[in-house]
Write a protein that binds this DNA or RNA. Structure first.
Length: 398
DNA sequence: CGAGATTCATGTGAAGTATACCTTTAGGCTTAA
DNA sequence: AAGCCTAAAGGTATACTTCACATGAATCTCGTA
């Protein structure tokens, strides 16, 4: 029985090279971003002569090719550097990843790890990490390009200090030079920065506009050709994927995800063709996976809080409710699952973090004499509620 | 009737605490010269 | 005397708590028209 399934899977695959429709893939040619790529390249080019390139900032909503473009350019740059014997290093850090790089310390630790120095997760003073960092870099002459992706997330959480220190770091280096590339999907991000940091950090700025539906189609076509075997994809599938993604501010990553997941689903059903229906199924699966992944990876107290939010939302038929309600239910859940209770102060912060993750939307309102509070609304598809609730309950032994 | 005071429920900031983990240091024991 | 191990001392980051004050519109109070 199993043999048959595996056999089927091996033989009947519809993918030629699935990597090509994965978000992390860097294709040979990048469509509709020539201008931006050239700009980036000309900003970073001085590094080949060991001259410090200007610091650079890339803006644009998600899935507009920011990460892709910078990756592409730096890859080429690295090759060129190798040819010319230039000691160039590029470090890419995604600041959003929780538990990996969401505090100043952890970002630095990540940085040092790239440079080949293991750092303990706790215990060392932050300045000593800076010291180690400068030491390593100063050991021999080199040019360092530091890419901080989703930097807005980090600054929200830990403030400007990291950026400030990084820009200052540059002056304490004698042998080497460092330039920072910041990537953010919030257009207003730089305005909120301290003016000093702002001027030194965003010497050059490049704005990435969203793709329109036609451009998305082009991109999908190229990628699909590489990823799938011939004539697997039905008429109109690519168009539908791009249309969906274009609705959501032209997010190419989303379009690719749709296509890939649709393909995976087809494969699982051991069908031969990717049809339009599968795009719809993929659409709901992606949403589901995203939510479940986030929810599952949260620590216990967060899960309890979220369960409380879900139950409140259910009780109120999707209408909004307040911090007090959440805490009350949370408190009950703690007793039920024999978990130590956390204060309301902390719950308030946790609710704020869920807001940042996009699982809920909150708004601070004043209800006059009813006091000031947060109005909380669940922002996930109602069909998922049951599932989320069950998983949480299971995780928490309820 | 309207200006100003009051009130409520919680937001928000700062400082403090517990925990887990790190480095440094000093002592104690072992080993080899 | 040198080398190695261990435990204590002193330090940090993180997650959380405690304390204290800030908010801001509905509601109340009270002097006035």
């Amino acid at each position: 029985m199993l043999d048959e399934i595996f056999e089927n899977f091996v033989k009947n695959t519809i993918f030629k090279n699935k990597k090509a429709v994965q978000a992390s893939y860097t294709p040979e040619i990048i469509l509709h971003r020539e201008k931006e790529i050239n700009q980036i390249a000309s900003v970073l080019a001085p590094s080949l002569r060991l001259e410090k390139p200007s610091n650079l900032f890339l803006y644009g909503v998600t899935g507009t090719g920011k990460t892709l473009s910078i990756r592409y350019v730096t890859n080429q740059l690295l090759e060129k550097a190798k040819e010319n014997n230039v000691n160039l290093k590029v470090i890419y850090i995604n600041c959003k990843l929780k538990k990996v790089a969401d505090t100043e310390y952890r970002i630095l630790a990540e940085l040092l790890e790239y440079l080949g120095r293991k750092v303990p997760a706790t215990g060392l003073p932050t300045d000593s990490l800076y010291k180690m960092f400068t030491e390593i870099i100063n050991e021999k002459e080199m040019m360092l390009i530091l890419i901080l992706d989703e930097i807005d997330q980090a600054v929200d959480k830990i403030g400007d200090s990291l950026l400030y220190n990084l820009t200052r770091l540059d002056s304490s280096l004698t042998n080497s030079q460092i330039s920072v590339v910041g990537i953010t999907n919030r257009l207003t991000f730089v305005d909120a920065l301290d003016p000093r940091i702002r001027s030194s950090l965003s010497e050059e700025e490049i704005l990435f506009h969203p793709y329109n539906a036609l451009q998305l189609q082009d991109i999908l076509r190229v990628r699909a050709k590489e990823a799938f075997k011939d004539s697997i994809i039905d008429e109109g599938v690519l168009e539908k994927c791009s249309a969906y993604a274009a609705q959501e501010h032209g997010d190419a990553r989303r379009a690719l995800d749709l296509l890939r997941v649709a393909g995976e689903l087809v494969e699982r059903d051991s069908k031969k063709k990717v049809t339009l229906d599968y795009v719809d199924i993929a659409e709901s699966k992606i949403e589901k996976d995203r939510v479940l992944d986030i929810v599952k990876s949260q620590p216990k107290q967060f899960q309890l809080t979220f369960l409380s939010i879900v139950e409140n939302s259910k009780k109120n038929n999707g209408q909004s409710f307040h911090t007090g309600d959440v805490f009350e239910r949370y408190s009950y859940l703690c007793t039920a699952s024999k978990v130590k209770e956390i204060t309301q102060r902390r719950i308030s912060d946790i609710i704020g973090e869920f807001d940042m993750l996009g699982l809920i939307t909150t708004k601070v309102i004043s209800r006059g004499r009813g006091g000031k509070t947060r109005e909380i609304k669940l922002a996930i598809n109602p069909n998922l509620l049951e599932k989320v609730e069950n998983i949480l309950k299971e995780n928490l032994n309820l």
